[in-house]
Design a binder for these strands. Structure first.
Lengths: 340, 340
DNA sequence: GTCGGCGATGGTGGGGCGCTTCACGGCCGT
DNA sequence: ACGGCCGTGAAGCGCCCCACCATCGCCGAC
C-alpha cells in the first residue's frame, strides 16, 4: 500500500500540484469548484500530509515534548503523570498534534533531550514539570527559544510562561483545618526540598504555624520510594513528642505513611491525623480514606497545552496564570486528637 | 540561535555537502582524515540531523507509536501503563528513537490513529496492547504493513509478532495454590470478557477446577471503575454460598475488592482469600498485603521494543515469544479458610 | 462604439527546506 | 592505460509558496 502524495491528487484531479496545495490549505488561488474537486479526490485517496515534508518545509513538527524525570522503578506508581498526559492529550488531539514522551534519568539528561529535540526539530515546544530552585532547564530553554510552559512557579520560571498551583494557599488551608481540629504539633514528609512547590508549601507551613502560635513544624525528608517514605513516618512517630498530624506531599507517601501508622498500632484519626497533597484514587482505596488536597490535574494539563500552543503561535494567551486552587477534601484520616 | 545544517559544516570544513554526509554516516567515499575533520566541525557546531529531512528522504520516522485506549478518568490509576512505557524507553533511548503517545477513546479511534500515523509517516511501528477476540486492529495493521508488536496472544495476532504472558499457566498456579489451602468455591472478577488474556485465564480457571473436581467457578464482570469493581465484589459476597476465594484480574480491582470485604466485616484471609493479577506497589500498600501474580512489566516493554525494532528492520528476532511466566507471591490476603 | 490598459481571478512552474545517494570525474599508483 | 580512492554535482523525497502567466471583465479615452 502506497501513501498518496499531492502529485497523485493533482494527476487525478487534472490540476497542478500547486493548485492542490492551495485547495488543501484553504489558500486563495483556486476556484471554489476546483477546491471541492480536489478535496473530494484527496478524501477518496485518503491523503494526509507527510508530517516530515511539512516539518522540513519550515512548518511545525506537529508534536510537543514531555520529558519525565524519574527513576524507572517509581514510574507508574504515581497517578499524577498519566492524569496530566490525559489532560494534555485532550487538547493535542483537537489540534492533531502529537505527544513525544521521553523518560530521563536526571536533569542533565532532560536538558540533553531538549537540545536534541530542538536540534532535530522533533517538537514545537515542551512542558516542563517539577520546577526546582534555580532550575537550569529554564535558561537552556530560553537560549534555545524553544517554546515551553512550566507547570510550577510562578517564581523562577524566567521568561517562560507557567501555570502554578497555589501551593501556599493549599498548605494554609490544611494548617487552618488541622488547627481547628485542635492539632498543634504538625509535621510534614517532604520530597526533594529543591522542588519549588515543596519550598512554597514549607514556607507557608512555617508561616501559618508562626501566626497561629503553633510550635515549629517538623520536616522529614523522604524520596518517593516505599522504604524511604515508610522510614520517614516511622521516625516521626517514634519521637517522644510525636506530631499529632502529618502532612504528606504526595498521595503515595501518605498512603505508605498510613500503613506505617496502623502497623505501629496508632489509631487514625484518633491519635494521628494524616493529610495528602494530590488526591487520587489511592486516597480512597485505603482505610480510613485519606483527607486530601485535590486539584484537577487533567484540567491543568489541558490548560498547559493551550498555553503552549499560544506560546508556539507567538500570540497572546501565553501568560503565566494560576491553576485552579486546591480543594481540601476531609475524609476519615483526619479528626480531633483524642488520647485514649 | 540557528540550527546548523550540513551545508554549514561543509563550508566550515571546506568540503562538499556530500562528503559531509558520507563522513557523518560512516559511509565510504571520504578519507579518514577528512572524516575526522568533518566530525570535529560537526561536534563544534553541535550539529544534529534534522529528523524531518531524514524522514522525508525515505528513512525512518525515528519514533514508534503507542495508542492508549482508555477513558481519561481511569488513566493514571493503573500502574501497568507507565511501567510498560519505562521499559519501552530503556530500549528506545538506546537507539535514540522517540515514543509517540496518543490517548484514544475506543478501538475505532485507535485504528484511525494508526492510519494517521501511517499516512503521515509519524511512526515506524507500533505497540498494540490489550488484544481482543477477533481484534480488528490486527487486520488494519497488516494491510498498512505497519510494523507492530502485540502484547498479548499468542492466538489471534495474525501475522503480527506477539509477546504473550502465560496467562493460563498463571491462573493454573493460582488455583492449585488456593486448592492446596482448602478453597473450593472460587470466583473471579473479570474486566472486559473480550480481552484475550481474560479469555485465556477464564478458560484455564474452569479447566483446572474441573480437573480438581472443584465446583464451577463464578464469574462477575466489572469495568475498571471504583464503583463497578466494588459492586462486583459486594454481589459475590452477598451470595448465600459465597466464594471463599476471589481472583481479580488487575491489582486495582483487587484492592477495591479488599476494601469492600473488610467493610462488610469479613476477615481476610480467614473468611476470604484474595489474589490479584498484576502485582504492583498498590498490593503492598493495603492491609493485609495482597497475594499477587507478578511479572516484570518494564522487562516486557523492553522486549517488545526489541522485537519491534527487529520487525522494522525486517530482520530476524521478530518472532512471537512468551514473556517470562508469572510469579505467584503469597502475601497476607490468602490463607486457609476458617469459619470462626 | 471600439479599443487599449488594468486589475482581479484562477491556475502553473519551479525553487528550496536538509538530507541521502547515485553517477561521474579527477588523480594517483602500478 | 586502467582500476581504486576521494571527492563533487545534482537529483529528489513531499510540501509550500513566490513569481509568473493567461484570461476576462470593466472602464475611460479616442
Amino acid at each position: 500500500m502506497k501513501r498518496p502524495t499531492i502529485a497523485d491528487i493533482a494527476d487525478r484531479a487534472g490540476v497542478s500540484r500547486s493548485a492542490v496545495s492551495f485547495a488543501l490549505n484553504d489558500q486563495p488561488g483556486v476556484s471554489e469548484e476546483t477546491r471541492q474537486r480536489v478535496l473530494a479526490v484527496a478524501a477518496e485517496l485518503g491523503w494526509r500530509p507527510h508530517s516530515a515534508a511539512r516539518a522540513l518545509r519550515g512548518g511545525r513538527a506537529g508534536a510537543i515534548g514531555l520529558a519525565l524525570q524519574r527513576p524507572a522503578r517509581l514510574l507508574g506508581a504515581e497517578p499524577f503523570t498519566m492524569e496530566l498526559i490525559s489532560g494534555l492529550e485532550s487538547e493535542l488531539s483537537a489540534r492533531s498534534c502529537g505527544l513525544n514522551l521521553q523518560v530521563v534519568e536526571d536533569t542533565e539528561a532532560e536538558i540533553a533531550t531538549y537540545r536534541r529535540w530542538w536540534a532535530e526539530h522533533r517538537v514545537d515546544g515542551v512542558i516542563v514539570l517539577n520546577l526546582r530552585d534555580a532550575d537550569p532547564r529554564v535558561g537552556v530553554l530560553e537560549d534555545l527559544h524553544l517554546p515551553a510552559v512550566v507547570i510550577g512557579g510562578p517564581a523562577g520560571t524566567g521568561s517562560l510562561p507557567s501555570i502554578w498551583s497555589q501551593d501556599a494557599a493549599g498548605m494554609t488551608d490544611v494548617v487552618e483545618y488541622l488547627a481547628a481540629l485542635g492539632h498543634r504539633r504538625l509535621a510534614h514528609v517532604a520530597g526533594d526540598p529543591d522542588m519549588r512547590h515543596i519550598v512554597d508549601r514549607t514556607t507557608a507551613l512555617h508561616e501559618v504555624c508562626r501566626l497561629r502560635g503553633l510550635p515549629e513544624p517538623v520536616t522529614v525528608r523522604a524520596d518517593y520510594s516505599d522504604e524511604d517514605s515508610a522510614q520517614a513516618t516511622r521516625r516521626l512517630l517514634a519521637s517522644p513528642d510525636r506530631p499529632t498530624a502529618i502532612i504528606y506531599h504526595t498521595d503515595l507517601t501518605a498512603v505508605t505513611g498510613l500503613e506505617v501508622a496502623l502497623e505501629m498500632g496508632l489509631s487514625v484519626p484518633d491519635e494521628l491525623s494524616l493529610v495528602a497533597f494530590n488526591d487520587s484514587r489511592l486516597c480512597r482505596l485505603v482505610n480510613p480514606k485519606l483527607t486530601a488536597l485535590a486539584h484537577d490535574i487533567p484540567g491543568r494539563g489541558a490548560q498547559a497545552a493551550r498555553m503552549l500552543f499560544a506560546a508556539i503561535d507567538g500570540g497572546p494567551g501565553a501568560d503565566s496564570q494560576p491553576a485552579e486552587p486546591y480543594r481540601l477534601l476531609p475524609r476519615g484520616s483526619t479528626g480531633k486528637y483524642r488520647t485514649r
